[in-house]
């Protein structure tokens, strides 16, 4: 048992080390929009955001963020804060800020698959609906 725990801890430790070394793009903006090109700057400015992927299509925008680990306690609050900030900046855009991992994961998938036009729009509306689901 003791041996097992030791090897397990070693495994987890090395995994953490490896994942820490892998440099990923931390802030991604995908798609084009009528306005809001400097959304990246605002998101980068927020010190509680660890990674973010922004998907834009026409006047719709999805800001999927991942909050830094120790700030996750205030996840809902920070999410709201960012939403307010962006709503103020781009009053004409239909913005949804989400700190949910699922939304972040799907947003990255959209970027990876390089979706465009109608398909992109479809996925975007679907994701926005999903993010609002409660139970």
């Amino acid at each position: 048992m003791r041996h097992l725990i030791k090897t397990l801890l070693l495994c987890i430790g090395s995994m953490l080390l490896l994942s820490g070394c892998m440099e990923k793009e931390k802030f991604v903006v995908y798609g084009a929009t009528t306005q809001g090109k400097d959304v990246e700057i605002i998101v980068k400015d927020a010190d509680y955001v660890e990674r973010a992927t922004v998907i834009q299509f026409e006047d719709s925008m999805l800001v999927a963020v991942q909050i830094k680990p120790w700030r996750k306690w205030q996840k809902a609050k920070l999410e709201k804060k960012l939403q307010k900030q962006l709503d103020k900046k781009y009053p004409k855009q239909e913005i949804l800020v989400s700190a949910d991992y699922k939304i972040f994961y799907e947003a990255n998938k959209i970027k990876k698959e390089q979706l465009e036009n109608t398909k992109l729009n479809e996925r975007l509306t679907k994701l926005k609906e999903l993010a609002k689901e409660q139970t």
């Binding site: 991992y101 999903l130 689901e133 409660q134 139970t135």
Partner: peptide, 9 residues
């Protein structure tokens, strides 16, 4: 299709 809010169940 589960989000962090719905994955609990």
């Amino acid at each position: 299709n589960f989000t962090e809010a719905t994955v609990g169940n």
